[in-house]
Write a protein that binds this DNA or RNA. Structure first.
Length: 224
DNA sequence: AAGTGATCATAA
DNA sequence: TTATGATCACTT
């Protein structure tokens, strides 16, 4: 039976234990345990289960730019799967401070901090299933392999150097093997500052790093 | 069906 | 506006 997580986690083992406590629950069951009601409007459900699972597992980062379980350095991500058991969506990692990203290095980047250790929670993501009936799968505590890390770093270095040198407008979602950059905004009218080719500031769309679903699919099928 | 661009909700 | 949580919707 699931318990509400109120105390900070002390170990990965404890996190796994809590994760097992929500495995197999439907979205409706999880919401009931938490005393929440499910949003009826599909457009208002985005992120709902992610937040609910955070509540259930007791994350500590809040809205800070840190992994969800701060003291353990673990990031929590839900991973919606389609009817074939493959990721239905890319995975958002972090927003990109376009004017200051060049001050970061891969190993000290926000992106790496969130990718070096991830608790993946697969969830049923097919729109054929009623939202309330979709279930939570078995969590996977994961770190990138050496090969994964090399490719992630290569992507990150390429993408951030394009941002820093004013090639923002050349970046679309097709750039990057595992990582990609896509808009991350309230809507098309949202703007923030970035650099142009001559180092001047331009108004542009806020962006974020995402993991391609081909990559998350690979990591998921690699579990034992 | 997959990939890319656009958008929804909420807190501080 | 920033961050958090993502999925929707259109194009290919």
């Amino acid at each position: 039976m699931m318990k509400l997580a109120k105390n900070p986690l002390r170990s990965e083992a404890e996190l796994i234990e809590r994760t097992q406590g929500i495995e197999g629950l439907s979205f409706l069951q999880l919401a009931s345990f938490l005393g929440l009601s499910l949003p009826s409007d599909p457009l208002k459900r985005k992120g709902f289960i992610g937040k609910a699972i955070e509540l259930a597992l007791g994350t500590t980062a809040g809205s800070k730019s840190m992994p969800d379980f701060c003291n353990l350095g673990i990031e929590l991500k839900t991973l919606p799967l389609n009817h074939l058991g493959k990721p239905a969506e890319s995975t958002f990692i972090t927003t990109i401070p376009l004017l200051t990203i060049h001050h970061q290095a891969w190993k000290t980047s926000h992106c790496y901090a969130k990718l070096k250790r991830v608790l993946w929670i697969p969830i049923e993501g097919s729109n054929d299933l009623p939202f309330a009936d979709r279930r939570i799968g078995r969590g996977l505590l994961w770190s990138p392999s050496k090969e994964d890390e090399e490719i992630l770093e290569k992507d990150w270095v390429l993408l951030t150097s394009m941002i820093a040198t004013g090639l923002l407008q050349e970046i679309d979602a097709s750039v990057g093997e595992y990582l990609q950059i896509r808009p991350k905004a309230l809507n098309g009218k949202s703007l923030c500052y970035g650099f142009d080719e001559s180092g001047g500031k331009i108004l542009t769309m806020p962006r974020g790093f995402y993991l391609r679903s081909s990559f998350t699919g690979k990591l998921l099928s690699g579990r034992q």
